[in-house]
């Protein structure tokens, strides 16, 4: 465990040095603030609070941005270090390979978690101080921050899987972008297209649930847009149909599985890999 912490600390320091932490936090804070104030302008007279609206727009933003940042942080983690030769030296120390993967994972998760909590939290506080808020939405807001970090963890783990799988960094980068496009854009488009064509003849609600669980971005969307009544009023499409069959625990479980499975797979791949 000690070795995991040492490697985690090194990753964190690396992140501070090459400005990953600063850049990510600043980006998320700027976007969250923009959405919080511009996005809530039209709701002034409506009963629902600005925070609830912000949750809807922020979680839509998160689905695009967090996986991208997570993949950029992680695709290089294993293949890059092998390429540069730092991995051979690291593994000559009394460190097991799984400790390297876990240490890096917690380090990267800490960077992303910090950026999310500070960046989004800053926007939430600003709304609170501006006074146009109902405090009930706060728990949903905190929940959104937590699940955003979790979504980041999922894509960091997927990034490691790619990194442990391929032979060179360029390929890893290409695949990472492909994975991002697939889960964030193409999957939902294909799913919606399929549903329109099908007209409800073959696709049962259960099948749709399974299809939604197969994409971590959709799981995150369902978690944040349907589990709180206040928010789901604003969420529109995502609140329809599918959410009914999937409780928050199922969804959380699915998200956790999406994190654990690629992480375990990358440990297994890396263990067999030649350095």
């Amino acid at each position: 465990m000690r070795q995991v912490f040492i490697i985690m600390g090194k990753e964190w320091r690396d992140g501070m040095r090459n400005r990953w932490v600063l850049a990510t936090t600043a980006l998320l804070a700027a976007l969250a603030l923009t959405l919080a104030f511009l996005g809530s302008a039209p709701t002034g007279a409506v009963k629902t609070g600005a925070l609830a609206v912000t949750i809807v727009s922020l979680s839509s933003l998160t689905i695009f941005l967090i996986p991208l940042i997570a993949l950029l942080l992680s695709y290089d983690a294993i293949v890059g270090e092998i390429d540069r030769g730092t991995m051979a030296l690291l593994l000559s120390y009394p460190v097991a390979r799984w400790q390297v993967v876990f240490g890096k994972f917690f380090g990267h998760l800490a960077i992303l978690g910090f950026a999310t909590v500070i960046g989004y939290g800053f926007a939430g506080l600003a709304l609170q101080l501006a006074g146009n808020d109902n405090s009930d939405a706060w728990s949903a807001f905190v929940f959104m921050i937590g699940t955003s970090a979790l979504l980041g963890g999922v894509f960091i783990a997927i990034g490691y899987f790619i990194s442990a799988l391929v032979r060179d960094r360029g390929t890893a980068g290409g695949i990472a972008i492909g994975v991002w496009l697939f889960f964030v854009l193409l999957y939902d488009m294909a799913l919606l297209g399929g549903l329109v064509v099908d007209q409800g003849r073959n696709v049962t609600p259960q099948m749709l649930n399974v299809l939604l669980l197969l994409n971590p971005a959709d799981v995150y969307r369902l978690l944040n847009l349907t589990t709180s009544n206040d928010v789901s009023g604003f969420a529109g499409v995502a609140g329809l149909g599918a959410g009914a069959g999937l409780g928050p625990w199922t969804l959380m479980g699915a998200l956790a599985a999406w994190m654990v499975a690629p992480l375990a797979a990358s440990v297994a791949l890396f263990a067999r890999r030649q350095v």
Binding site: R13, R84, G85, L89, L90, Y93, V95
Partner: peptide, 28 residues
């Protein structure tokens, strides 16, 4: 065991002292 790889690669963003401290901790 001590190992010096051919064309040793180290982490460029850490200082010399930090690099050595990192490896010393790993070795206990």
């Amino acid at each position: 065991l001590g190992y010096l790889p051919e064309n040793v690669a180290l982490h460029p963003s850490l200082t010399g002292a930090e690099t050595l401290a990192f490896y010393a901790r790993l070795k206990g």
